[in-house]
Amino acid sequence: MKFIKHFILFLIINFAALGFGILLMADGPKSDWYVQLNQAPWTPDDWVFGATWTSIMICFSIYMTFLYLKRPTRKVITLFVIQFILNVNWNFLFFNQKLIVVALVNIILLTILIFAFLITYFKDLKAKSLLILPYFIWLCIATSLNLYILIHN
């Protein structure tokens, strides 16, 4: 029961991050500004982003539940909050403010943070650490997309 309660809480918070991100990105990928950018040839179709982020946030919620139950520390919660802020902030910086360089720095910091989760808590979670791997891999892809747009526009 303790697991379910914490899982639902992390799920709500993580999907709230996605919701806030969507609200802050204005027209986002449908805006004239974004459509006219030179985008990476490996840019996925629009539907992939929603499916991927849904899967990632479910996995990340399970990961955070295991981690928090194992290490209910201020450090874990602080890192989680920073992750939340960086995740939401990227949409605002990139799509709303069109600050490609600042957004790139933001997503690099987020990628480093997620990698730090993976490495720092691997001994505690062992195979359960695989749950954060999709988030890290997707951030690497998203970072490459952001970098491509910076270089080619």
Rank of each mutant, 00 (worst) to 15 (best):
I4E: 13
K5I: 14
F10T: 05
I12C: 15
N14Q: 14
F15G: 05
A16D: 03
A17W: 03
A17I: 06
L18K: 09
L18W: 04
G21N: 11
L23D: 04
L24C: 10
A26E: 11
D27Q: 15
K30P: 00
S31M: 07
D32K: 11
W33T: 05
Y34D: 05
V35Y: 01
L37N: 08
L37Q: 15
N38A: 14
N38T: 09
N38E: 13
A40I: 00
P41V: 07
W42M: 12
P44K: 05
P44F: 05
D45P: 13
D45Q: 14
D46W: 03
D46L: 14
D46P: 04
W47Y: 15
G50N: 15
A51S: 11
A51W: 09
A51Q: 11
T52H: 02
W53E: 10
T54F: 14
S55M: 10
I56G: 07
C59E: 02
S61D: 03
I62W: 01
I62R: 06
I62T: 13
Y63N: 06
T65E: 08
F66W: 00
L67I: 04
L67Q: 04
L67V: 06
Y68W: 15
L69S: 09
K70H: 01
R71G: 02
P72L: 06
T73N: 08
T73S: 15
K75S: 10
L79D: 10
L79N: 15
F84E: 03
F84K: 06
I85W: 02
I85V: 15
N89P: 03
W90L: 08
N91W: 00
N91T: 08
F94L: 08
F95E: 10
F95K: 06
K98T: 13
I100Q: 02
A103D: 05
L104Y: 01
L104P: 01
V105Q: 03
I107V: 15
I107N: 08
L109Q: 06
T111N: 13
T111R: 02
I112S: 07
I114L: 03
F115A: 15
L118M: 14
T120E: 02
T120Q: 05
F122Y: 14
L125G: 06
L125E: 01
K126A: 06
K126Y: 01
I132D: 03
L133V: 15
P134E: 02
Y135A: 11
Y135P: 13
Y148D: 05
I149W: 00
I149Y: 00
L150N: 02
H152G: 01
N153H: 07
N153F: 09
